[in-house]
Write a protein that binds this DNA or RNA. Structure first.
Lengths: 145, 145
DNA sequence: GATAAGCCTTCCCATGATGGGAAGGTCAAG
DNA sequence: CTTGACCTTCCCATCATGGGAAGGCTTATC
């Protein structure tokens, strides 16, 4: 199977398949005499696995661990579960950060007349120092993802 | 005021201040005889504005529009409100995507014994074709941010 | 006045996951 | 044997951010 066929069979673009090979997320594909990458059904299954994990928001490092566990027939499901729970925790954290932004913005927008007058609590807030919502600790929601 | 002082007064790193100048989010700073960037209190206020807007998740393009409105004393608050609401909508979209991931993961993790046995519905799911949750339309949650 | 510490400047590189595109080789159908 | 659709590698761009090098400036201390 060509890379193009593997791509459409797995839902991972050819570009990304080459990239995954380059960063060693997947082993180097076999090559035809002419240098074309060749994929087997197993390879496609692995690519689908990756695709699915990405859809669940896993980063490549985590996917790498998941793949290792997937291949390890003597794995402990506890390890898989731990990864999933870490992912859940990460997602919940980012969700919470964004929800806090939404709350602030929604509050401000509600106070904004939204007509042709210039006065606007949104701008007023942005220019003020104190974050009156979430007045806690830290130095700003990193939220890099 | 030096760039370092402006940085600590505004909460925007010196690196980022230079970057914002480079991408023309902010006007070029004045320069001392020796070529050092000089900042006024007004400049710091603008930087704080930017910092605050970033904390609310606005992208640089949107901040650019916000700054223009901020400076425009004959602005219509409707325009500000529109930007805020677009931001809210974008955040809610990303939140929804992530919540769907959490729901899936949580469901799978609950079915996982989490002990030393290898069997695990999480891996089983990743290797299957059909996304049994969110079986709808599209080609995967882009969720680029 | 010399020296050192701590700023500042610009320039280049890296991140993470992805796509775009160019230049050139290959394969399959007509 | 030509044509079009594929493949290869290589480079560039994204977005916001940081790291670091090489060199200049400033300020305080000896």
């Amino acid at each position: 199977m060509n890379i193009g066929e593997a791509a459409s069979a797995s839902g991972v673009s050819a570009k990304m398949i080459r990239y995954y090979e380059q960063i060693e997320l997947i082993p180097p594909a076999g090559r035809s005499a002419a240098g074309y990458r060749i994929y087997s059904g197993t390879d496609v299954q692995m690519l689908r696995f990756i695709r699915r994990a990405r859809d669940l928001g896993f980063q490549v490092d985590a996917i790498s661990e998941l793949l290792a566990l997937w291949r390890d027939r003597s794995r402990h499901s506890a390890d898989v579960k731990r990864l999933a729970q870490a992912q859940i925790a990460g997602l919940r954290l980012r969700i919470a950060e964004m929800e806090s932004m939404v709350a602030t913005l929604d509050h401000l927008a509600q106070g904004c007349s939204g007509d042709d007058r210039p006065d606007c609590p949104i701008l007023a807030d942005l220019e003020s120092d104190a974050s009156r919502l979430a007045p806690a600790s830290h130095s700003g929601p990193g939220f890099k993802r």
